[in-house]
């Protein structure tokens, strides 16, 4: 119980830090970066910011670090996905029993029956993030559960089946917000197939 309160407190702290980070980006990032070509609707961006904050995107797409009070999202790397320089060794085999999957200390890499998945860079960097995506790509990805809306299946634990329930307007808002972020170059590793995947 006490622990629960503590966690909630930490989470709240995280969010405060998060909004701070956002303001920082908003104020400082503008001139230097290559802004997305699309006109962003301010109301949609604001709604998207709220949705991203409350739907857990930071839980997995922002790397977590061990702070003085326990694990917390590192907001200096908000939504940049699994850090390219945080190279994971092969996952240790699990003992027989009910434990099914493993997570990295950053909460950005996950090993399970699907192989190993790494969370995507959600900033609008053209080469390594969502810079070449359109709202249609994003909507199709959520609705089909396929990579870029067309490719392989999006892997767990990305909760696509949950976000597929969003209205299209909210999907657009989330995307508008993500496109408003400063692009960060971080090439997330490709997923690793499970050993039985063959050729």
């Amino acid at each position: 119980m006490a622990r629960h309160t503590l966690t909630t407190g930490l989470l709240a702290l995280g969010f405060v830090a998060f909004s701070g980070a956002l303001t920082w980006h908003g104020l400082n990032a503008a001139p230097a970066v290559d802004r997305p070509a699309v006109e962003l609707d301010a109301a949609a961006v604001e709604r998207g910011a709220y949705l991203v904050k409350t739907m857990g995107c930071h839980d997995c797409h922002t790397p977590w670090t061990m702070g003085p009070r326990g694990p917390e999202p590192d907001m200096s790397r908000a939504l940049t996905g699994h850090p390219a320089d945080f190279v994971m060794p092969p996952p240790p085999p699990l003992p027989p029993g009910p434990w099914l999957w493993l997570g990295a200390a950053t909460n950005t890499a996950f090993a399970g029956p699907w192989g190993v998945s790494f969370t995507a860079n959600l900033t609008p960097d053209k080469e390594t993030g969502l810079g070449n995506w359109t709202a249609e790509t994003f909507i199709a990805m959520l609705k089909t559960g396929r990579h870029e809306g067309k490719g392989r299946a999006v892997l767990p634990p990305m909760p696509v089946q949950v976000y597929a329930e969003l209205t299209e307007e909210d999907m657009r808002a989330v995307f508008a917000y993500l496109q408003s972020l400063a692009p960060v170059h971080n090439r997330v590793p490709q997923p690793i197939d499970p050993p039985e995947a063959g050729q």
């Binding site: 396929r146 067309k150 490719g151 392989r152 299946a153 490709q190 197939d193 995947a197 063959g198 050729q199």
Partner: peptide, 18 residues
Amino acid sequence: MRSRRPSSQMPPLGTVVR
């Protein structure tokens, strides 16, 4: 085209044999 592993194969669906 050579791959039939989910993470890399093309096309991504409709085929499991190269």
